[in-house]
Write a protein that binds this DNA or RNA. Structure first.
Lengths: 216, 216
DNA sequence: ACCTGAACACCGTTCAAGT
DNA sequence: ACCTGAACACCGTTCAAGT
């Protein structure tokens, strides 16, 4: 019999992420996770206080994947902040369940805190006042999270076939939403349209606005 | 024995919202809801296909409370769009559980669709192109939802006493997050600071940016 | 120090049976 | 047409007992 190596939090989190990626966060239960780890559900409680700690842990694990090198002393906050926003979106999209967990957890882990510290450090060392830091960060964060949440819960419109497309357009117009109908048939449901492509428009608009506010 | 009036979806949704408001969305179960309605859990399935329909229903009910009069023919989209964003935030804050449901539901109800139709109609009748409509709406929606999500999941910092405040500052600085620590002690944790006050800064920055993009 | 089995108090949902 | 009781297949978590 080969002896199993001791279980660690790291291994538990890794397996939990795999489960959530493959079967959805709704199917991540302590019992199923334990089964995957070849132990009984109750054994997990030797390593974790409760499921909360598991969820906090895997969110933080996702955040730890953000590319982490930044010249905090940089004098150009704008391209750097842009890069950070893009990076956050990228890791969240890799694990679509993570965005929903992120803002329902009240105990941010070290990687989440490290990220906040990095962004605030960037702004502060570029001469942003406390209030401009707070304004800017609230704005960028809200936008990125809000955008990714919508993106992750969008029906996979790519695979949407012509029949159900016209069906949903017809349903809309029957219920009396003329503008929405028009917009859907003339724009949203065209195969060229991709919600994801909207991300940079909003991000750059926000960054330009912050720049103007910063310069007074 | 007084005869109970027939149960309707409207009554079920109303009771469900009351339950979620009072005890949190986590405590809204089919069984508890049925008990409040003085019926057995299984009877709910005579009125609803499943719990999904319940959640779709109560989200839509929340959206139906948005003030709904709008002069869609208005030539000034900016104050109107601003008012809509503020109204959406207001109703979502009244039912803090609703924001999390909103973007996990894939079947938007009539009130949600009506709202989308209204905003798109406003922009379209003010001469926005399809692509500017899509850009603008994605941006505003992302911001509002992202902001409200953060707002709803913030620890009730108002009641936070001095002891735990300094404790959390110390914890931060011990872990080595100097900027975050500084920002917390010099700004975020001061009693005058309120995250909610950040909302209008971002909203107006975005609206001004859209205005510039619209004018070319 | 770690794992286990049995148990508790829950879930959503189905189904056959009642009125 | 609506309601019910029993049942199924799940949850997270506790606790006393094992090694």
């Amino acid at each position: 019999m080969k002896r199993k190596k001791a279980l660690t939090k790291a291994k538990i989190f890794k397996e939990a992420i795999k489960l959530a990626d493959n079967y959805g966060i709704a199917n991540l239960s302590m019992r199923k996770l334990a089964k995957k780890l070849n132990i009984e559900a109750m054994s997990l409680y030797n390593h974790l206080a409760n499921k909360e700690e598991l969820l906090d842990g895997i969110v933080d694990e996702v955040f730890s994947k953000i590319d982490w090198r930044t010249d905090t002393k940089s004098k150009s906050w704008k391209p750097e902040l842009r890069k950070q926003a893009i990076a956050v979106r990228a890791v969240l999209l890799q694990h679509p369940w993570s965005i929903k967990l992120l803002n329902s957890r009240s105990n941010p882990g070290p990687s989440v805190l490290r990220h906040h510290n990095k962004v605030l450090g960037l702004l502060m060392s570029c001469g942003f006042s406390y209030s401009m830091c707070a304004h800017t960060y609230a704005l960028i964060d809200s936008y990125v999270y809000g955008f990714v949440i919508q993106e992750c819960s969008l029906p996979a419109t790519r695979g949407c076939d012509f029949v159900e497309m016209t069906a949903s357009i017809n349903a809309l117009s029957r219920q009396g939403f003329p503008y929405l109908t028009k917009m859907a048939e003339e724009y949203y449901l065209k195969p060229e349209y991709s919600f994801s492509d909207e991300f940079l428009f909003g991000l750059d608009l926000i960054l330009n606005g912050v720049e103007q506010a910063f310069k007074h």
